[in-house]
Amino acid sequence: MCNLYSMTAPVDTIRRLFEVAAGAVPNVPALGSIRPTERVPVVRSSRAGDREMAMMRWGFVLPQGDKAPKPVTNARSDKVNISGFWRSSFESRRCLVPVTAFGEWTQAAPKILHWFRLKEAEEGVFAFAGLWRPWQGELRGERVSLETMAFLTTEPNADVRPIHPKSMPVILRPDQYDTWMNGSPKDALALAGPLEDGSLDVERAD
């Protein structure tokens, strides 16, 4: 499970690299340490069919009866097309999550944070394979209307496995963006595997 990432590139860089259509974009500061429930930039298809940027809350909202709703930040790639929680978003609301690095902690004590970056990323920016959906309900005693996002995870490659042996985010390359956002569910799911070994730089956070 990946519950920490960063997005430090300027908005104009995101717009250019992700071919966001001209028009208003949110004012996004450098986000060096993003955690669940924070608002983050996401690239999705607009009603006109081009790409737009929106700010969304990280984590689909999972009601828990009498307990507070839980944010669900990651979707397993082997579940998105069969789970009722994810399926409608996977079929019709796929998006791109701009990223400059993601963090994972070692499993054994002492816990040590490591940052992962895509070696070939243009200007240091890459994308997670994301999903989004609107949600309305009560959070912390207040009635709210939100747009939420989560991203897919898959089995780890050799770069991630020594640090986090359970999973890694699904990372897309630019030539895969359109298929992920607009292709059939079958074609999109074919992209939801681990990166090739050796694709990531790994840096221990001291």
Score class of each variant (00 low, 15 high):
C2K: 03
L4P: 00
M7G: 03
I14N: 00
R16M: 07
L17W: 13
V25I: 09
S33K: 13
T37K: 01
R39M: 08
S45K: 02
R47D: 06
D50S: 10
D50Y: 09
R51W: 11
R51M: 05
A54G: 06
M56F: 03
W58R: 02
G59N: 01
F60M: 01
L62H: 15
P63K: 03
G65F: 15
D66N: 08
K67R: 12
K67G: 05
K70H: 14
P71Q: 04
N74W: 10
A75H: 06
S77E: 04
V80W: 12
S83G: 03
F85A: 10
S88H: 15
S88C: 03
T100A: 01
F102R: 05
F102K: 01
E104D: 12
Q107P: 04
P110I: 02
W115F: 09
R117G: 08
G124P: 05
V125E: 09
A127H: 11
G130Y: 12
L131H: 14
W132S: 05
E138S: 13
L139I: 15
R140D: 14
R143G: 04
M149S: 06
E155L: 13
H164S: 02
P165R: 12
M168P: 04
M168D: 06
V170W: 04
I171V: 14
R173T: 14
Q176T: 06
M181K: 02
N182A: 07
P185Q: 02
P185Y: 11
K186E: 09
A188F: 06
L189H: 12
D197I: 09
G198K: 08
A205V: 14
